[in-house]
């Protein structure tokens, strides 16, 4: 049993399960965020701040958020362990690299894409999650913490907005390989479902990041 948990196949499966859970989390997170742009002005402020309060206090959300934090930590730890382990498997590289002709770029650069995502996640949590929990932010007219205004102000900055859009492109590439790869790893990408799974994976890897990126872009444009 011990060799089971230390095997590359077990660790890879756990990395895939945590990664796929993070995809589900992204969908939920996206739906929440869309409230920033679906309404406007005071209605958006009221709605979004009530939602933010709900997300920080509801016990069911608490449990989900623990699963999410666990997934992120597991995913990062396991992929780093696996990537370092595999680096050792080829101490001398090739003079001529042929990877471009037999595999997709994103599939060969998951660690680079993931590291950029990690930078994004840290900055993103500092900006909003940390502020919401421990920052000194004002209240809106209904007396709720005004995360809405924090967000709107943040995206008045073109560079901050650009960083978000760039990070969503990185996410798109990570997902373009990650979703299909995760389904293959956990064994659901059978020959019969290969095509539909690959197509849906690519569709999601375009749709999720574009919808996310549209929020800072719209907030920035509204601030002009």
């Amino acid at each position: 049993m011990n060799s089971y948990f230390s095997s590359t196949l077990f660790r890879k499966t756990l990395a895939a399960l945590s990664g796929l859970f993070l995809v589900i989390f992204l969908i939920g997170h996206l739906i929440g965020n869309l409230q920033l742009i679906l309404l406007s002005g005071e209605a958006a402020q009221k709605q979004f701040n009530e939602y933010a309060l709900f997300m920080t206090t509801n016990p069911a959300v608490k449990i989900l958020s623990i699963v999410t934090y666990t997934s992120i930590i597991l995913h990062i730890l396991l992929t780093i362990i696996l990537v370092l382990q595999s680096k050792q498997a080829r101490p001398i590289g090739y003079a001529v690299e042929g990877g471009g002709e037999n595999s997709a770029w994103a599939s060969r650069n998951m660690a680079l894409l993931g590291s950029l995502l990690l930078v994004f996640i840290i900055l993103h949590m500092k900006s909003f999650w940390y502020e919401m929990h421990w920052g000194a932010i004002g209240n809106d007219p209904s007396g709720n913490k005004d995360l809405y205004t924090v967000t709107v102000v943040a995206f008045q900055n073109i560079w901050y907005t650009a960083f978000y859009v760039f990070s969503m492109i990185i996410l798109g590439f990570h997902l373009s390989h990650g979703i299909g790869s995760g389904f293959q790893t956990i064994g659901l990408k059978t020959r019969k479902y290969l095509e539909p799974i690959e197509k849906t994976a690519i569709l999601f890897s375009i749709l999720i990041p574009s919808a996310f990126a549209s929020i800072p872009i719209i907030l920035y444009l509204q601030s002009l």
Partner: peptide, 22 residues
Amino acid sequence: MVKQMDEEGFGHCTNTGACEAE
């Protein structure tokens, strides 16, 4: 066989598909 494969020091699979292609 999986245990032996790991012990020999081969890397893990990231599903790039390069193996099937080559």
